[in-house]
Computed example of a mutant assay.
Amino acid sequence: MLPELLLKVHRIHDWVTELLQRSQGTFLFQGPWFASMDFLVTADPANIHYIMSSNFSNFPKGREFKEIFDVLGDGIFNSDSDLWRSQRKAAQMLMNHQKFHQFLVKTISVKVGKGLIPILEHVAKEGKAVDLQDLFQRFTFDSTCILVTGYDPGCLSIEFPEVPFSKALEDAEESIFYRHVVPERVWKLQRWLGIGEEKKMKKAKETLDRIVFEYIQKKREELSKGIQGERRSRRCGSINIIHE
């Protein structure tokens, strides 16, 4: 199966979709013996529900998964057992909250109305070509940042500004794909030496950490200014009452 993968790697997503369609939703990919490339790929809703919900405890991610996806830290996508349950419970409480739903709808509506549609109208009027994948990545990135940190990075604009965070995510994804292809000892040696794909992964992690910290810090400053402004308003109101 490896030769066909190498021939189709430039269109990997389309190729996997075609394989799943031909195999009725579930496909077993077997790579060479020296690589960690044996995958059971499924898009069958019943299988996904069985793995992710009804029998989740039978499918732990394990140490190897956590090491390969170390960029995700100890979050819900990397955790197992009690840690996963506690994070899942917290996420469900947040996503099921009425105010979160209202904030989600408002955020998406604003981004569509003031970001996505104006850009599409502009490129249509100017007769320009636009990379829809890049456009929707910017839309998703801005919306997610607002929902998670409360800060809008403004990547979805007519100027199409450079997005270091998005580039770092792409580099991390490529490095993770590489870790699935080569033997574990190879990429761990590269990580120790600081070369190749592991050098790219290290830089991507540093960029992701730096930008997330900046967004959180900006939101804290906004909240701090808001609290201080509210206190000043209260003090001024109290002074006016005393004066009267």
Score class of each variant (00 low, 15 high):
Lys8Ser: 07
Thr144Asp: 12
Val212Arg: 12
Lys219Tyr: 04
His243Cys: 14
Val163Arg: 04
Leu83Gln: 06
Lys188Asn: 01
Glu244Cys: 12
Ser79Tyr: 02
Val148Tyr: 09
Glu230Gly: 11
Asn58Ser: 14
Asn58His: 13
Ser53Asn: 12
Ile146Cys: 07
Glu159Ile: 08
Phe77Asp: 09
Arg11Gly: 02
Ile68Asn: 01
Val41Leu: 06
Ala124Ile: 10
Ala35Lys: 00
Gln102Phe: 11
Ile119Glu: 07
Thr140Ser: 08
Lys219Met: 06
Pro118Met: 03
Cys236Leu: 15
Thr144Arg: 11
Leu20Phe: 10
Arg85Met: 11
Arg231Phe: 07
Phe56His: 15
Ala204Tyr: 00
Glu222Val: 09
Arg22Leu: 10
Tyr151Thr: 14
Ile158Phe: 07
Thr17Gly: 14
Gly150Val: 05
Gly226Cys: 07
Gln24Ser: 12
Ile158Gln: 11
Leu156Pro: 12
Asn58Met: 12
Ile216Leu: 09
Ile48Ser: 03
Val123Ser: 06
Gln102Thr: 02
Ala35Asp: 06
Asp80Gly: 01
Ser109Gly: 08
Leu132Gly: 02
Lys167Arg: 13
Gln92Leu: 11
Glu67His: 10
Lys199Met: 03
Gly229Glu: 09
Leu40Trp: 08
Gln102Gly: 12
Ala35Gly: 09
Leu104Trp: 09
Thr107Gln: 00
Ile51Asn: 02
Phe34Glu: 05
Tyr151Phe: 09
Ile211Pro: 07
Thr42Leu: 00
Ile76Tyr: 12
Glu244Leu: 05
Lys61Ser: 05
Cys236Tyr: 15
Asp82Phe: 13
Lys218Asp: 06
Lys8Cys: 10
Lys125Gln: 11
His10Ile: 08
Gly62Leu: 02
Glu174Arg: 14
Leu40His: 04
Val163Asp: 00
Asp82Lys: 13
Leu189Trp: 10
Ile239Gly: 05
Lys218Arg: 14
Asp44Leu: 00
Gly113Trp: 14
Trp187Thr: 04
His97Phe: 09
Gln92Arg: 12
Asp209Trp: 13
Pro60Lys: 07
Asp131Phe: 01
Val41His: 08
His243Glu: 15
Tyr178Arg: 06
Asp131Thr: 03
Gln98Asp: 05
Gln217Trp: 08
Glu197Trp: 00
Leu132Lys: 07
Thr42Val: 02
Pro161Asn: 01
Asp171Ala: 11
Ser233Phe: 11
His180Thr: 04
Tyr151Ser: 09
Lys167Asp: 04
Asn240Pro: 08
Ala91Phe: 13
Gly62Pro: 01
Trp187Ser: 00
Arg235Ile: 13
Leu132Glu: 05
Thr149Arg: 05
Ile119Arg: 12
Arg88His: 12
